[in-house]
């Protein structure tokens, strides 16, 4: 499991092993400040980081 969250200290505190920095509490995989295309690029990049973490031994 890879966990995407903006509040990484909490994820680490409870013992999550693969933690990915999310964009914000209100949208871990989005950003209302960006236009649609940029936002999707951001989301893709975060999901790819999560997949990369899943592929990596910890």
């Amino acid at each position: 499991m890879a966990q995407v969250t903006a509040v990484t200290p909490v994820a680490k505190m409870v013992g999550s092993n693969r933690v990915i920095q999310g964009k914000g509490i209100v949208y871990p995989l989005g950003d209302a400040e960006l236009d649609a295309e940029e936002e999707k690029d951001l989301r893709r990049s975060i999901v790819r980081q999560a997949l990369e973490a899943l592929k990596t031994e910890v």
Binding site: V26, Y27, L29, G30, K40, R43, R44, I46, V47
Partner: peptide, 19 residues
């Protein structure tokens, strides 16, 4: 509100299905 505007911001179905 932001998730209600686009739930993919929380549950990223759109990009995961592309991948």
């Amino acid at each position: 509100r932001h998730v209600l505007n686009d739930p993919d911001r929380l549950v990223p179905v759109d990009v995961l299905k592309e991948l």
